[in-house]
Write a protein that binds this DNA or RNA. Structure first.
Lengths: 343, 343
DNA sequence: TGCAATGATGGTAGCGCTACCAAAATCCTC
DNA sequence: GAGGATTTTGGTAGCGCTACCATCATTGCA
């Protein structure tokens, strides 16, 4: 009977450190997690023992004993969408120095998938959860409300947060973009939308509101598809819209990929931008300012959303929940050549 | 003294399921992990009890007891780079139905960061590790060699795998792209490169090899920067290259973002593509075929690399390590308008 | 029919860590 | 300098699960 190294790969445990440092195991545990509760002397002895043995705490044992994993669960609808990629980067960057790991999953824009993943995440007792959007299913919402950890909904804001929120109003974004096209002198402004997830729907709603307010709305101006967005699709949608409505003089694109597809198609078909057709995108990806012509877009603060989401969750974990449970990071209209009809 | 629900959130445990099903805890454990080792009758009883209680196994307890977490550790140098985003998507998609979670981390193209993250990952005893590239530091390599789990190096292939590899030859890619430009009739072909990570370096080496073989190499044709790649940077590099070498008649771009920057700048400066300057990119992002002119590029199989990496690791976990430890997924030259000087 | 081989099931003992409480050491205050 | 308050340290008992081995039932074969 040799209980030593029976299963573990022989890696040092907290008991080994304790023995070497001549203290109790629990003191080592404390020295690592709450150094201020351990005297300077012991802290140094322990630190030295840790280094000598190359001790690294086992996160699984830790999670089991404390009934709390040092994990941020993050649910996003897409991994390849540049917008979410930046949000995710913001989250990872904010979390990289702390003890927290990230558990990322892709819902593929499916509420059911989100439920399933939430269930999975919850089984780990995460330290916090970050979910995309505000349109969770009833089941998901219930799971999140009873989750016993901070929850941050990101990308959008709305009136009824599960816990906390950081994002901006897509409806307002759509409205501002559309109004900008109207002010630029466009009258028959098309809406091109792909995927039509809830955020796209709200941008469309903002477009409709602006168009109706100006007395310019016509349902034939709207061209959408449930197909995932891409530059190629932008070109196709634009062709469809033009076939339906040859007199278009502006398009508000659901996102920048579509706008780029429009720009390319205009080159190909020798349509003058902005003179014949003005173009406005959404998100303001890096390339929009370099495009020819440069493309007007709504700048959104994706990276910052990721950072703030982590910041808010962290504050809640530390017990200092921000008084502002809803953070509106806004957006900015970036005016560029594609809507500048003056020259 | 009430040991019941003392710490756990009152969620059902395997013991609760066992009690309800009238079997031993270990039998429940087996029914869940190796159903074929449990009789049909008990399996059904257990399944019913699981559903009735809404039991979800605790992955932390599982990992602790079995000294093996059901986690795939994945290290990539960037989360926003479209290429790695697709690799990561392939990995997630392949893993989504199985029991495995993904632990993703961003090395920011830093070997030191990679070492640190590897250490962190290893403390979880992952089921497999997927790392990017073949240029690990000595320390990282040692950690991986003694990792006691399958290791897959992705994106590149080389002669000396740590364990397994799936990718393609960036050197060959660079050579093929350059030869294509030469065959198209270009003579003063510039190389534009950003970031200059090891893969970019090898594409550059391929370019040099092709140019030297054709007797066309001139160091002034090469323009690189350690700055991270972007479309904006592509424009700037192109301007620099042109200032240095106004007689350029072709450019091989390290990646498609840079190629796109070149295309836009050519529009702006009224340089005819491909007649005056031909352009070739690398990776073949979706938008290259829609661009105007459409852009010749080297198609790489990112998503497939992610899928294969998981497949190989999975096979190794199941004990059927593939005999081919190095999988070359190759690449394809996609000829498009930007290098078609015939018309 | 008897007995080894095989398969199904269960008990026990941890995995490595921390919550909880108790004990010891230190610090005040009057 | 006594007595209480406070800080620092340690022991014990799990967290929920599975590895290991023991046990019992079933089967196969002479």
């Amino acid at each position: 009977m040799k209980p030593r190294t029976r299963r573990g790969g022989g890696r040092p445990t907290i008991a080994d450190v304790a023995r070497l440092a001549g203290v109790g195991a629990i003191t080592v545990s404390r020295a690592l997690r709450e150094p201020e509760r351990v005297s300077e002397t012991l802290r140094q002895q322990i630190q030295q023992a840790v280094e000598e043995l190359g001790y690294v705490p086992d996160p699984n044992a830790r999670a089991l004993a404390s009934a709390r994993a040092e994990v941020f669960g993050v649910l996003v609808p897409s991994l390849t969408n540049a917008v979410f990629a930046e949000v995710v980067r913001g989250i990872y960057d904010s979390l990289s120095d702390g003890p927290f790991r990230v558990q990322l999953a892709n819902t593929h824009y499916s509420g059911l998938e989100e439920e399933r993943l939430l269930q999975l995440f919850l089984s780990q007792r995460p330290a916090a959860l970050i979910v995309s959007g505000i349109d969770q299913t009833d089941t998901s919402r219930r799971l999140l409300e009873t989750a016993d950890c901070p929850v941050v909904q990101i990308m959008e804001i709305g009136p009824d947060p599960i816990d906390m929120m950081v994002g901006f109003s897509h409806l307002e974004g759509g409205r501002v973009a559309t109004n900008h096209l109207i002010e630029a002198g466009c009258r028959r402004i098309g809406f091109l939308g792909a995927r039509m997830d809830p955020r796209s729907q709200r941008r469309l709603a903002g477009y409709k509101a602006a168009m109706k307010a100006a007395g310019l709305f016509d349902p034939r101006l709207v061209t959408t598809t449930p197909v995932p967005s891409s530059v190629t699709l932008g070109r196709d949608l634009f062709r469809d819209a033009l076939a339906k409505m040859p007199s278009l003089d502006g398009v508000f694109c659901n996102n920048d990929d579509i706008a780029l597809g429009v720009i390319f198609e205009c080159h190909r078909a020798a349509i003058a931008v902005p003179q014949t057709i003005s173009v406005c995108g959404f998100n303001d990806l890096d390339m929009m300012q370099v495009a020819y012509p440069s493309v007007t877009s709504i700048r959104t603060h994706r990276y910052e959303i990721g950072r703030q989401a982590v910041g808010m969750a962290m504050a809640a974990i530390d017990g200092s929940r921000p008084e502002n449970r809803i953070v509106d990071l806004g957006f900015e209209l970036r005016r560029r050549e594609s809507t500048d009809r003056q020259n």
